[in-house]
Design a protein around this nucleic acid. Structure first.
Lengths: 127, 127
DNA sequence: CTTGGCGTGCTACATTTGTAGCATACTAGT
DNA sequence: ACTAGTATGCTACAAATGTAGCACGCCAAG
């Protein structure tokens, strides 16, 4: 996974797709679309557009594979969520990040390694 | 504080100003602007525009007072943050809201009453 | 009085985001 | 070989957001 100095923020829709890809690892646009909760009601082309924007933003890699494009994360989940967690801690919870990290360790589906990575990322960045 | 069925989401900049007003209670545009961290580097008119958008969205009330407009929250902090907390719990932390609420009770600057209110709001809404 | 500030109500404009559709190319079944 | 069904690369477009500027009115200092 690469490290970028200035990774653009993820919009709401973009985060939704990243979550699917962080979970699945590598999928075609059609597969990603299939995993979207029906509740979204997106047109297939909408899914594709957001996917492409994620590629443009550097979050995903698009690899042609036997005629179809497969998308896969270039940015790890901790890296992708770091900014969001930081923002939440500073501007919503308004508390030290420690407690939040502990919560990730205890309640979330993040592996210990991911939590560790997230913790490091939050530590080095002060914004 | 009113209860709205469909309160528009707060954008990043809007949340920043709401935080100032939830803290101070009632301020003029100039005062709000003054409390903005220099780091923002906003023009005064930008602050005013965002303030007006908050009025339009129903988050703030604007009351003319001896020639100046004073802005004050119409929506309580728990109400304003509920949607954000919910989103964070479901889509970032991916865990039950309980732990997060406990964190607010323990680490944040929210009063017990506010935490209680937040908890209620998170409970009734499932999205 | 005259003028410099500050406040107010509008208007402006580039990006980002949400949400799609179209035309063309390729693939497997008939 | 033809055709129906996909996949792909573009293009589109409105609403939301970030970020300001302008013109006009009012008040206090000179």
């Amino acid at each position: 996974m690469q490290r970028r100095k200035e990774l653009p923020d993820l919009s709401r829709a973009e985060l939704d797709l990243m979550r699917i890809l962080w979970r699945a690892g590598r999928l075609s646009a059609r597969e990603v679309h299939g995993q979207l909760d029906e509740a979204y009601g997106w047109a297939y082309s909408t899914t594709r557009t957001v996917l492409e924007r994620l590629v443009a933003k550097g979050y995903l890699a698009r690899k042609p594979f036997h005629g179809v494009n497969l998308y896969e994360p270039l940015i790890s989940r901790p890296q992708g969520l770091a900014r969001i967690v930081l923002d939440f801690a500073d501007r919503v919870l308004e508390a030290d990040r420690g407690g939040l990290v502990a919560l990730f360790a205890r309640d979330s589906s993040m592996s210990p390694a991911e939590v560790k990575e997230l913790e490091e990322l939050l530590k080095e960045r002060k914004p």
